[in-house]
Every structure is written in structure tokens, then in C-alpha cells.
Design a protein around this nucleic acid. Structure first.
Lengths: 251, 251
DNA sequence: CGAGGCTATTGACGCAAGTCAAAAATCGCC
DNA sequence: GGCGATTTTTGACTTGCGTCAATAGCCTCG
């Protein structure tokens, strides 16, 4: 059962953090894709020294809320978070999902207040990086400054991709694109690219992609009928990657 | 005629740049909203010294193209530019419009290659800011580093707003939101918030908002019938700001 | 100033996705 | 392990926007 694979991953995570609430960047298995990326050992230690590690977030718990005072950005250590904004009329808009090794909270820098809220989709651990320390350290660590500029730039580029997706694509294209994105991000973490568990609900997926739950559900059914996908609850198996890619950028 | 107002603005711009191809930040009327914002006089001079000013772009001319090597970000001095991406199947997606005082090109930092193309919608002048110099200067000028972080963060937050718009809103809401955005940005530059000339075509507007030209045109007609707007070709007059606001965040 | 080519507007029609509704599956909790 | 709440699926119907098509206005260049 693939459930075993999943639980193995959880174990790994827990092994790395539950057992030790103050791990270090230098022995974090995510160092290669997270903030320390491209820093030298000494620099990693300096970065490490400004990072704060709190206790894990429970499912549903908020990491920060819209218009909270902005003080830190966060790196996901385990679990998944979603970022969302609340529109004036009270509806939600999911603006992103964040997986281990990814940084969130950067949209708060502009106004010293978070522009979105972030909540855990499952038990999650994060590293808190106080922004004022990060700024100071960046000024003396060119690699870090550059990397952080790059991270922000990537966030911009990714948002633009989502804009394109929302602006142009059919329901099938949108869902396919999201699945491919999750698959690629799993691969980056050396996890299965074809077999994974969706930590977010269909509602969240629909919300993120600008679709209703019903439509998301229908798309999954359709893709299963095409034998491109196997969906079993939250477990997803990509059966035909090429078919999915074709759907994703089919006009 | 409002045409006079517009031409007066053009004159001002041309007066400031055509006459002198190497103006300085310190006497640029956009300094208050552009990169020099919040820098001290000495710092402004340092920034000034790394900025390159080329000759104006003609309408339709590219500032950079997708996948061009990334070397600089750009500040708009006069005119308007649009940024857009080309999807795999060759279609365009406009990702933003840039007005005087605004910075573009930051999406290229992540991969050392521009993630979008930028072209002038009318004759435009830009300041080129070589990124490597900006990085170096940032490291020694905390104000500048911070401000640039903030600019990137704002870009992220704005993209997220567009995502929400595309994901949730009706055609009328989208168009109203764009008009309000342009109006607000004009106000920031001390220009009329209620009376302006659209430098982009209906096609570009539709593309940006994820709508067809026909729909944009119909929305304009509808808003005119409601007496919220007066549209005469590219000239726009906002007759009823409140009505427009109501449309913009009406569900 | 008039011909040709864009750009914009308007109308008629179809379809993809939304809405409403109800059943089925799953989750969470005692 | 079973009951209620939540999530997901499926179906029938509606609708806003896209598509196609035709006309009108505007811009430019000889």
C-alpha cells in the first residue's frame, strides 16, 4: 500500500524534528532546497543562529493572519500550509500551497503587515526567520542576499504562472497543472513524483484554481476515466504523465 | 478638451527627458515614489551613479524579451509598458502594466533570465538599473536593501490581488478593479484620478483580465449606461467613483 | 482625402462551468 | 464501532462569457 510510503515520509520528518526541536540547518535534509542553498558552511551557521524553531502547528492552526504585524518569514520543515486572503465580502482566496523547503510570508515585507493568512493543512513544523535579522545578515552575506532576492523573484514568477493559468485555461488544464506542480515539487524533495497524498481538500484546490468543488471532482473523475490518474480519496497516483502534460497545456 | 490635459502631461515628460537624456534622481519628479524613495541625499547620489539612461523606446519596441539574459531591472520614467508571457501554445498573457515611477523586470532575478517580455505601449523612457550594481549597493545601504525587498514584496502582493480578481470576479468587477487601480496610480503621480487616457488597447485589457475584447467592450458600454463612466475611445472619465467601487467589490 | 487596415462595438448563439440538490463516502469523536 | 458532521461525488438545470459574424469608427500613409 502506498499508505506505507506516506507514513514512512511522516516518520522521517518526525524523526528529524519531533525527536529534536532544535535541529540545525547544517544537518537538515532540506538544506539543499531551502534558504541555506548555495551558502558556505560558515554562512549556514550564521543563518542557523538567527532561526527560531517553535513547536509544531496542529492541523488548522494559523501561522499568521492577514494584517498581523510582519516580523518573520517562515520555512516549512514538514507538513503543508496554505496561504489565503479574505476578500472584502468575506470570501477566501487561496493564493498558494507551501511544502517542506519552501518559504512563505514574503508578501508581508512591503507593508510591515502580512498580506495573507497562513494555516496548516496538517501537522506542520516551520522555521521562523526574523526578517530584521535576515536583513542584517544579508547585508554582510552576498550569497544570502542574492538567494533571498531570487526566492522573492521566484515567488513573483510563480504567481505570474498562476495568473496565466487562471486567465486562460479550462478546468482540466488547471487541475492537471496543479497536479504536475505538486509532482515536481515532490521530486525536488526526492519523494515519489507519481504517487502522493493531497494534503488539501477539494474545496481548497477549487478555491486555488478558481473552480468550484463540483468541477474539481468532475475533472478527477474524467481523468480517471481516461486512465491518466488514479484517485482514491486523497491519494493520487499519476498513471500517465504524458497524458497529464498534454491536458495541462492543451488549448 | 481633456486631450489638452493629456498632451500637457506628455509635454512635461518630454520636457524632463527629451531635453536632457541624463537627468538625475535628485531632480526627478518621480523620486518620491520610485527607487530613491526614503533614501538620503548621499544615498540617492550613489544610486544615481549606477543608473543608466538610454534613449526612449518607441511604441511597440521591446525593453526585454522572455528568456533574455537578466542583467537589469528598470524604472519607468515616462510612458507605459506592458509585461507579458507567451504560453507554450503561443498565446500571450499580459501580466502587468507599468506606469512612471514603477519598477519592472524583477521576475528575472530568480533564474538570471527574464520570465516575461516587456514592450512599450507608447513612447516611453526608462532608467536601467544593473542588478549586480544594485546588489552591491544594497549590501552597504540598508535603506536601499529594505526598499528593494519591499518593492519585490509589493509585486508579490499585487500579483496575489490579481489572482483573486481572476479567480473570483465577474467581468464587470474585473474591469472596475483595473480602472480603479489605474486611477489610484495616477493619483500617486499627482495626475487626475478621474480623467485619463488608456494607453493599452482593449485587447490588452481583456488579455490582462482574462476576458475577451468583446466582453471588455460590453462592460464599458454597460458602465456608460449606468453613468458610472464616460468612454470616448481611449479617454476615460470616471463619473461616479462610488458606483465603480461598488461594482468592483460586488459579488 | 480617400483607401485599406486596424480597433472597437454590437448582436445572435452555444457551451463550459456554476448553482442547486441529493446521495454516498469518509472522518472524527465519544 | 457506530453516529453525526463534513467532504466528495454525481446529476439536472442555468447562466455568463466566449465564439462567430457583421458593422462601424479611427488611424495612417500615399
Amino acid at each position: 500500500m502506498n499508505r506505507q510510503i506516506i507514513e514512512l515520509e511522516e516518520d522521517l520528518k518526525l524523526g528529524a524534528c519531533a525527536a529534536d526541536y532544535s535541529p540545525h540547518c547544517s544537518n537538515c535534509r532540506l538544506a539543499g532546497i531551502c534558504l541555506p542553498f548555495s551558502l558556505e558552511a560558515k554562512e549556514v551557521d550564521q543563518l542557523d543562529s538567527i532561526i527560531q524553531r517553535g513547536k509544531p502547528l496542529q492541523k488548522g492552526q494559523h501561522l499568521y493572519r492577514e494584517s498581523d504585524r510582519f516580523e518573520s518569514v517562515f520555512a516549512v520543515r514538514s507538513g503543508t500550509l496554505k496561504a489565503y486572503r479574505t476578500t472584502d465580502d468575506g470570501r477566501e482566496q487561496v493564493t498558494g500551497f507551501y511544502f517542506p523547503g519552501e518559504i512563505l510570508g514574503m508578501d508581508g515585507i512591503a507593508n510591515n503587515a502580512h498580506a495573507s493568512s497562513a494555516r496548516a493543512l496538517e501537522t506542520a513544523a516551520v522555521c521562523e526567520i526574523p526578517f530584521s535579522s535576515l536583513e542584517k545578515l544579508s547585508a554582510t552575506t552576498p550569497h544570502l542576499q542574492r538567494h533571498f532576492f531570487q526566492l522573492m523573484s521566484r515567488e513573483i514568477a510563480e504567481d505570474q504562472q498562476l495568473i496565466t493559468l487562471l486567465s486562460k485555461s479550462s478546468a482540466d488544464e488547471r487541475v492537471a497543472a496543479l497536479l504536475l506542480s505538486i509532482s515536481a515539487r515532490n521530486a525536488r524533495r526526492k519523494l515519489s513524483a507519481s504517487h502522493f497524498r493531497l494534503s488539501m481538500s477539494r474545496v481548497d484546490i477549487g478555491n486555488y484554481l478558481g473552480l468550484t468543488v463540483e468541477t474539481v471532482s468532475r475533472v478527477f473523475s474524467r481523468m480517471q476515466k481516461l486512465e491518466a490518474l488514479r484517485v482514491e480519496n486523497k491519494e493520487i497516483e499519476i498513471l500517465d504523465l504524458d497524458a497529464l502534460r498534454k491536458i495541462a497545456d492543451m488549448h
